Structure formats: C-alpha cells, structure tokens
Simulated scan of single mutants.
Amino acid sequence: MRYCDILLHLTDDGRGAEKTAMALSLAKRFDTTVTALYTLPFPTQIYYMGEYVPPSLIQQQVDETRALAVTARRDFEAAAKQAGVTASWIESDDDALSALQRHGRHCDLAVLGQPDPDRDPSALGGTLPGDLALALGRPVLVLPYIGQYAAPGKTVLIAWNDSREAARAVHDALPMLLAATSVIVLCIDGDEQQQRSAASLVQHLSHHGITAKLRHTTAADIGAGEALLSALADNSADLLVMGAYGHSRLREMTLGGVTHTILQSMTVPVLLGN
C-alpha cells in the first residue's frame, strides 16, 4: 500500500526548500509523483482602506510575486530532478484553500506548511491546515514552520480517541505506518470504551503487518493538547497521526480543542484525517 500522487503546496512563506525536501523524500519512499501547487499571494496594498493606491504600485507587487514564483519553480524542478522524482508544476491566483481544494481532491496526500504568523499573508489567519483537512476529503500532512523534517515517519504516534476522525486518519496513514520503525497508539484520559477500542486498533494494525504499542496517559491539569505534545517528546516521535476536529470547529476554536492546540504549537509533522 502506498501513496501514488502527492500534492505539495508552495507559496512565498520562506519554507519552500523544507516542504519540497519532505515531499520529495516521501515520493522516493513510495515511488510516487509530486505536483507542486504554487499560490500567488494577493497584493496587500489594496487593503489600505481610505487611501489611493496607484495601479503601478499594485502591478509592481504582482510582478515581484510572479518573479518569486519563477524562482520557486526553478528551485523545485531542480530538486525534483536531482532526487529522480517525476514532478509537475501548477500556479494559481486563487486563495490557498480554494486552490488546494480544486487540485487536492485528485491526490493521495496533500503536503503543506504550518502558517508562520510573521511571514505568510495568505494563511487565512493561521487556519489553513485545519480548514483544508475539513474540506478536502484527503489526508493532509502539515510541516511545522520551524525545524527540518525531510523524512518523517520513523516513529509514529497515533492520537486515538475512538472517533470517526481518528479512524479516518489511521486509515489514511497506513502507508506511513507500514514504513515506520515504531508505531505507538496513545489514549489520553480514555474511559473503558476508549481503552478497549485502542486495544482493538492495535490488533487491527497487526492484521496489516504493523506492530504497534499501546500506551495510556492522563492530561491532568495541562489539557489533552499539551499532554499530546509532551507524549511526542517523551516517545521521540517524528510524526503525529490524528483526526481533525473531533468536536465542532466553533467549539474547538472557542474552548481550545486538541486539534487547535496542535496546529498552533506543533513540534513534528502532523497527518490529519477527517
């Protein structure tokens, strides 16, 4: 079982090389193709309300943006050629979410970056990965905006809560789980039903030839999201598999749900399923 085509989201966020390295590493691992989707940021000058903005100034920013896209394409295609990976390139003037929805439904895995709040003007308020996971219908692999993660998936931690979203994420991650050296199923503050379900998941994974370890922990006063981040560090995991938004999106954002915490503070790549 493998991913057959990967969609890589690139934009002017300063992380093109890191995201490209991860996508190409996965492509080599699964013998697949990579399509880079470069979204062109919208000119920021038009948002200066109440002030006249000369068209020449807007055109200047458009030209600069397109020049950056030319450089990004050159770098991506050179990296793909060096890696021996079949690759293609798409540019879009649409907002990132719309463009990724349009092109991502024809891929097995979408790879994108965690928005850097200091750099990415097209990140939709930092919610792009979560919004995409809800809308796409395909697994979404998110790279943190800090650090190097060219080849994630040696030690995979599954956040299990017996939800539909978690089950979907595990299924979507099967190629990664099959290639992993170590797989851990983690149940946080699980009741008796969730603990039984976690044990059943370990057995199910064994039917796929995956030996997984079952572990339980409690969130105590730090919350489930922080407990999950702590577990990632304690187990030296380099990939987290989890369902996106087990509760309503509004409730997650208002009360600070696990998905929201992870997407804001991720320390390793995260594969989201929904």
Rank of each mutant, 00 (worst) to 15 (best):
V170H: 03
H171P: 01
D172N: 10
D172T: 02
A173P: 07
A173V: 03
A173L: 07
L174H: 05
L174R: 08
L174K: 07
M176L: 15
L177G: 06
L178I: 07
L178T: 06
A179W: 00
A179R: 08
A180I: 01
A180V: 01
A180P: 00
T181E: 15
T181Q: 14
S182R: 14
V183S: 02
V185S: 08
L186M: 15
L186A: 13
C187V: 15
I188R: 06
I188Y: 09
I188N: 03
D189C: 13
D189S: 13
G190C: 09
D191Q: 11
E192S: 14
Q193T: 15
Q194C: 13
Q194T: 14
S197T: 11
S197F: 11
S197N: 14
A199Q: 15
L201W: 07
L201K: 11
L201I: 11
L201R: 07
V202F: 08
V202T: 15
Q203H: 15
Q203F: 07
H204D: 15
H204G: 12
L205Y: 11
L205W: 05
S206E: 14
S206D: 12
S206Y: 09
H207Q: 08
H207R: 12
H208F: 13
H208N: 08
H208K: 04
G209R: 11
T211S: 05
T211Y: 03
A212Y: 02
A212S: 08
K213F: 04
K213A: 09
R215F: 05
H216W: 13
H216F: 15
T217Q: 12
T218I: 07
A219E: 09
A220M: 04
A220R: 11
D221S: 13
I222F: 01
A224L: 06
A224E: 10
G225H: 05
G225A: 10
G225Y: 02
E226G: 02
L228F: 07
S230G: 11
A231V: 08
A231C: 09
A231G: 06
A233K: 12
A233W: 01
D234G: 06
D234C: 09
N235Y: 06
N235D: 13
A237C: 05
A237F: 03
D238W: 00
D238V: 01
L239Y: 06
L240T: 08
V241W: 07
M242G: 02
G243M: 02
G243C: 01
G243W: 04
A244E: 00
A244R: 00
G246S: 07
G246T: 11
G246A: 08
H247C: 00
H247N: 03
H247V: 01
S248M: 00
S248K: 00
R249T: 00
R249F: 04
R249K: 04
R249A: 08
